[in-house]
Design a binder for these strands. Structure first.
Lengths: 306, 306
DNA sequence: GGCATATTATAGAACAAATCTATAGCTCTG
DNA sequence: CAGAGCTATAGATTTGTTCTATAATATGCC
């Protein structure tokens, strides 16, 4: 890995130049010099320096997150090559959201393990952007998710569509929207809730200019009255207010148990595409393509068609 | 990016050392030297050299794929920091653990939205350290949590105490620990569950030398039989096993509804201080201080006094 | 207040590394 | 078999990195 970035990580972890210097077995002036140089090449101040040590600026925090990713990617690369030399097959890891896992991925993985007990598939559950993070650092080979609108193409991912799912709107019992079909304008009259809370360190994944549609993305902060990464919190909020929770319709039955009911829509609902994200670089690898084929086949029998 | 990797990519793309040398504006012997060095650090031959140029070995192919990823990651990081510098004004986002959210933050937020519909408050639920992380990277303005022991003071946070809470222990109905007061040793005989999943990247927030007490910190990986970032998962585990879920007592009523009951403690329980974490530099901002005042007021009426 | 002890910053010397020039050696092609 | 195109090698040169020594500044403690 890049020397300056490695040293940067050490400084961020130690919280001081001198502390990092001792762990890195170099002297403190060297680090002072190098970190200045890094700040120059990055073009932003990375630290707030004081006589108690250094603290990361927000630019420093961004770099820290990404430098850690790069570090992981580098380590994963080295071990991948080492595995290649030993002739041992690398295990594949698949990422997924909980619903896809429960719906059909689980069975597929169980089958796969049985067929290839020596090269098992591992599974990482999480939200889309975390999974993207993990894919970029080489921790997972591919993941299942909704198509992410406005994703920056320079990230270099392929998206393989599998299924069409639609968004439904959910409100508490006795809400005025219930009882008759409603159009989009009527629904938008009420405050909106969404169960996805973007973190700024994921903002780099997005490229606003190339957005295909004009819909709000996860980073629009104005549109929603309430948003949270916790679905439970969103449900609580929907139960305690007149706001409308928008979520994929596959959760309808679970929501009814919590006391949220689906609003009938008088217009065709917004369709989302669910599918597989995979790095362009990994296309063509035998095991990856095999897994994609298996997932596609399983999706065709379980999920709504495209 | 790492210089050698950049040069490696150029060589792989050009298919020859001399060709890459001209595009890189360096001389061919330099590249010969550098690529040898890279092969040494990677520990595998990357090229098959011939008088017609060079060809990637399978190790070279692996490195090529991953080096391209690193390259992109680096570029994306630079542009993310540049975007950050252009500056985006953010709304207020409050972080919290689920317990505080359910107990009183929910009502406060619902009220707040009604009062200021144009400047909504967003909520991020998560464990303390994730919230700390998010606060430092600017995603959230403040968060509610237990006082974090051993926190490195150079991080520059203010802690505003709100309430004294104690940790209780919860088990499923009919558990042997129920029915009589138990001491700490008796409770520790059973496997432990905790609803906090530490990530190693947060370790830098801690300053081990200044830790006041010797209690297990969140980074002890051996002590707990089960830990998850999802409270629901912890509850599931507690219901399905003999393990003891340790959690703040304020959730007792909610736990009873789920089928978990509090173990009577024969010794005085460990007291924690709950309060608001906020960045020193954001103190004084009108909306931040307003929110702090509202939270403090709500806490006084809902939570145990200090 | 003032001393001890952290910290980062600076300057110049010493050292290490990267790069270049020049040249050799190999292999395919006409 | 000579020429063109490539990589490899050796030693000189240039550039960059790291170190030592010291200054400057803040913090905490007596």
């Amino acid at each position: 890995m890049d020397k300056l970035l490695t040293q940067f990580l050490a400084v961020a972890d130690a919280g001081s130049l001198s502390g990092a210097a001792t762990t890195l077995l170099i002297t403190q002036p060297t680090l002072t010099f190098n970190m200045r140089k890094l700040e120059e090449t990055i073009g932003a101040p990375l630290f707030e320096r004081s006589s108690r040590g250094v603290r990361l600026t927000r630019y420093g925090e961004t770099l820290y997150e990404n430098a850690r990713l790069m570090n992981r990617l580098y380590d994963n690369t080295l071990s991948a090559i080492a595995d290649q030399q030993r002739g041992t097959e690398r295990g594949l890891t698949v990422g997924s959201g909980y619903s896809w896992w429960a719906m059909f991925l689980k069975d597929l993985v169980v089958h796969y393990q049985r067929e290839f007990p020596k090269a098992p598939v591992q599974v990482s559950l999480g939200n889309q952007l975390r999974l993207l993070d993990q894919m970029l650092s080489g921790d997972i080979s591919l993941f299942l998710a909704h198509e992410i609108d406005g994703l920056n193409p320079s990230i270099g991912t392929d998206f393989i569509p599998l299924s069409r799912v639609y968004n439904a709107h959910f409100v508490h019992e006795g809400h005025k929207l219930l009882g008759a079909p409603r159009n989009r304008a009527e629904i938008n009259d009420y405050p909106q809730i969404i169960s996805s809370l973007a973190e700024s360190r994921h903002e780099r994944f997005f490229d606003i200019s190339r957005r295909r549609t004009r819909v709000e993305t996860v980073f629009d902060r104005t549109h929603y009255a309430f948003r949270s990464n916790s679905l439970a919190a969103c449900i609580d909020y929907a139960l305690a207010s007149e706001a409308v929770l928008t979520h994929t319709h596959v959760m309808r039955d679970a929501f009814i148990k919590s006391g949220l009911f689906e609003v009938e829509q008088s217009e065709p609902p917004r369709i989302n595409i669910a599918g597989i994200y995979v790095l362009k670089e990994r296309r063509g690898e035998e095991r990856v393509e095999d897994l994609i084929a298996r997932i596609s086949a399983a999706a065709r029998t379980t999920l709504p068609p495209l």
